[in-house]
Structure formats: C-alpha cells, structure tokens
Amino acid sequence: MEFLSPINEFLVDQLGPLGPLIVVGLLGLFMVLLTIPMLLNQPEDPLKKLQKNIRQESAPKPRKERLRQGNRNEQLEKFAHFLEPQNEEELSAIQLKLRQAGYQSKDAVRFFHFAQFALGIAGLILGVVYVFLLGAGEDMTSQQLTMYVLGPGAVGYMLPKYWVTRRVASRKEAITMGFPDALDMLLVCVEAGQSLDQSIVRVAKETRAACPDLAEELEIVAYEMKAGKDKDRVLRDFGTRCGVEDVSSFVTVLIQSATFGTSIADALRVYSSEMRDKRVMRAEEAANKLPTKMTLATMMLTVPPLLVILVGPSVKGISEIGNMGN
C-alpha cells in the first residue's frame, strides 16, 4: 500500500484535504454513468418474456380506444427493483402522495424516483464542471469545494419531492375552493331525479372549466362505479385521493345515508348548507387576517421614510453646529 502514498499526497496538494474523497466520488459517478447504458441494453429475462407472451395470447384483443392508464413502461420495468420502494408501506405512501398531486399513472412512482436520480446526477455533473473545469475552485477551501460539488446534486435530488409537495398543497386548495359549488350542483341534479352516478358524471362535466382537479377526481369515481366496483370503496378512495377534510366528511355522509336508508337529497341539502356556511367563515377569516398583514407591511414601508423626513433635518442641523464649533 506504499505506492498509494504519493498519489494521496498529490491529490491533497492539488485538491486540498478532501482531494482523495473527491476523486473517489468522481470515479463512483463515472461508474454509475457507465452502468446505466449497460442496464438499459440488458436482455430481457426469458421467463418474463414467456409469461408476457402467454398473457398477450390469452388476453382479448384490445379495443381501438386507449385507456387513460395504459400498460407500464417497458424501459422502466427493467429498473423496478430500485425505482420502486421494496417496502409495501413505503410504496403505498408514495403512490398516495403522487395521486393526491394528480399523477394517476401506473408508472408515476418510477418516474418520480427516476427524476430524483437523474436530477441528482445532473446536479453533481454541473457542480464538478463549475468547480474543476471552469476553474472556480482554485481559491476555495475543502468545505466550499464539497458544498459546490455536492450541493447542486442534493438540490436536484430534492427538487421532485418539493414539486410534488407544492402540487399536493395547491391541488388540495383548488379542490377545497371548488367543492361547495360542485356540491350545490350535485344536489340540484339529485333533486331533479337523476341517480347519484348520473349526477356525478354531470357535475364532473360541468365543473371541468372551473375546477379541473375536482372534475378529474369525480370522473374517476364515475368510471369506477361503471366498472362495477363497490360504491362504498369507490367513495372512500375518492376521499383518500383528495386528502381534503370536506371531501372526507362528504364521503362519510353519503356512506351513512346509504347504510341507514335515508334520503340522499336530504343529506346533501344539509351538508351543502354547512359547506356554504364554512366557505363564508373562510372568507371572514381571510378578511380578519388582512388588517394584521397590512399593518406589518405599512410599518415596514412607511415608518423608515417618516423617520428620515422627521429626524433628517435635526441630524443635519446638529452636524452643522458641530462643524461650526470645530
């Protein structure tokens, strides 16, 4: 191992105390980039290929129309062992979060982890290019080198998670704002004599322009009911996908109404009235918060100029008197 000492000293002299670590990280990155094409071009497992052919032969001929959720991506299928969590609970959690963000595809989890992996690698490459190839790391310390090399990679890795989180929050807000109007429309349809399934289809069609996120969820509910799925299960999945408290309460009202045999129209009438009152309360809460926010902004924007106007002449006069005394 003595032959490694000169190499270690050379790396420390050129790159600082963390030089060997940086070189090892670059070699690992190079090996990962070298492995990706090899994995993409690896042959398909004969057993899986045989099973796929058997399923294709036994399956009925597909219709011309494509379903909204098609088959899984075959390229991503090869990397399912590291593009999907192996723990069932973690997989269910990330699937739920992506569905709450509006990504209903079967490959959503794989695309999410692939985006994290790709953006992380891209960030590391940008950091290495900026520090070493552009010469920006000549006067940097070892900590600064580490930050500029690993920082973009960490940012790229966390960017998809941040995007999904913001998307979930904005989608929940949009559903919360559009749900009272959709509920009123659903009540009108039910009282007009339509069934609950027909009312949901009509409301989904009418609310697409105002709230496309809620309309998409209602369309999923309508399709699942048409497919013969249990109505209680469909409604519970609807509340889970939305992740909004008002929708969950609405689902509970419908399930209890069907369980006890009460009128759905009466339940919807009472609940829609509560939703209207709740919307008014939200508006009043936002209006009550506004004076506090305006007061803080007004103080920050008006007090400093006012102090300058009032105190400025006095300070100038005192300074002139001091200069005259000198």
Rank of each mutant, 00 (worst) to 15 (best):
P291F: 00
N8Q: 14
S319G: 11
G70C: 02
G228V: 03
A122G: 09
S195C: 02
I54Y: 11
G137H: 03
M31V: 15
V164D: 02
M275E: 12
K49A: 14
L186G: 02
R110G: 06
G156E: 01
D181E: 11
G153D: 06
V131L: 07
A297C: 08
E173H: 10
E9T: 15
Q116N: 07
N323G: 09
I94Q: 06
L91I: 01
T262F: 07
P304E: 00
I175V: 15
M299T: 10
L50F: 13
T35C: 10
F10L: 14
R99G: 06
F132A: 02
P37L: 04
V315T: 12
I318C: 07
L119Y: 01
L76Y: 04
V12S: 08
G127P: 08
F79G: 00
D107P: 10
S314H: 10
I175C: 04
P180Y: 05
A204P: 07
F112L: 02
L186C: 02
F117E: 04
N53A: 11
I121E: 00
Q14W: 13
M140E: 05
F114P: 04
G135D: 03
T302R: 05
R282Y: 02
F10D: 10
P60K: 02
Y162T: 13
S273T: 09
I220Q: 14
L29K: 07
E9I: 10
V201R: 11
L126P: 03
F179T: 06
G228I: 00
I175N: 03
K97I: 01
P46V: 00
V149M: 09
E219G: 06
E216L: 14
V308M: 14
F250P: 01
V280K: 11
D184E: 11
K231I: 09
M324R: 14
M300W: 09
R63F: 08
E191I: 00
V201Y: 06
P6T: 13
D45F: 03
E206Q: 14
M281E: 15
V188S: 09
P37F: 04
H81C: 08
P17E: 08
G325D: 13
V221S: 02
C211D: 15
L235I: 07
A222V: 02
D197H: 13
G151F: 01
R66Q: 13
Q198M: 11
E219H: 09
G156P: 15
G243C: 01
P85F: 03
Q256G: 05
L150H: 05
S142L: 03
L34T: 11
Y162W: 15
I125N: 04
R68P: 15
D45H: 06
G16F: 04
F112V: 02
E216Q: 15
K205Y: 07
T252D: 12
L91S: 10
F10S: 10
D230P: 08
P20G: 03
L124A: 05
I22P: 01
S273N: 09
Q56R: 11
N53M: 13
F112W: 01
Y271E: 13
C211P: 04
S263M: 03
T165G: 02
P160T: 05
P62Q: 03
N41A: 05
L119Q: 00
L254I: 14
